[in-house]
Write a protein that binds this DNA or RNA. Sequence first.
DNA 1: GACCAGGGTAACT
DNA 2: AGTTACCATGGT
Length: 289
Amino acid sequence: MSEIEFHKKYKIEINDFDLKQTLECGQCFRYQKLDENSYIIVARERVLKIEQDNNFFTFYTSEEEFHSIWEDYFDLKNDYKAIKNLLAEKDEYLKKAVEEKHGVRIIKQEPWETLISFILSQTKQIPHIMALVEALSKAYGEYLGSYMGKEYYSFPGFEKLKRVSEEEYRALKTGFRAVYLFDAVKRANENLLDLEELRTKETGYIREELKKIKGVGDKIADCVLLFAYSRTEVFPTDVWIKRLMAHFYAIDESNTSLISKFAEEYFGELGGYAQQYLFYYGRDNKLGK
DNA sequence: GACCAGGGTAACT
DNA sequence: AGTTACCATGGT
């Protein structure tokens, strides 16, 4: 078991960015909190340690890797101050949400990991989702090293999952999602699903292609579009958002299509950002019951 | 033990 | 086209 050293460091000042908020807002499932100001994340076949001291961040990697990978991964070149200003002008709820959750950034995650993670997410609470993703990685991913008594594994690609049976997925406590996992892996391996090719396609086309996978509907497809393909105009509509839209804007929470239509007109191109600020703000403050 | 969790499907009206 | 039971599992 090789201990990861993290001997390289790159320190940089970044505004409108908060580690806790960005990692714990519900968009990603593979982070480990070390203490109040530092986290370990596993992404892109790597383990990264990050520390935050107000607006200063220490990335335990080279400056070169920060610029080639993590700056893009955390969407750090995007002007979130401008985005937050536009949202805050819309109404009091958004104003409060962007003020309280001022450091959220929409991470650019890998499409495959995002797809599988959100397939696993259905009718699960976030800690459970994290446990399932962890179990899947430990069972079929690559060992990347250990740090402070914890082992880290990469997220397994579809090639690595090619020979895995539904029963083996069930053994990981994935429940009825095992069939969905199996179908996604099968499609990817049979070239019926090419997530890299989809990257450049139109949003609507990507959504329809993703929905061909068993167990993938509008919500999961939209999460992949937002969190992996950076289609920041989409508005993933889950149980929380339904309740919150009823709470904030008096829209019937049982009418998902009406909520989507309202979001499209009201938030426009900023739908994805609005969704994430409202989701995190609402969930964290237990709004909408 | 009932009820719910970052949903989706199939079988109903 | 719009409801509803059900899916597997873990936590309150």
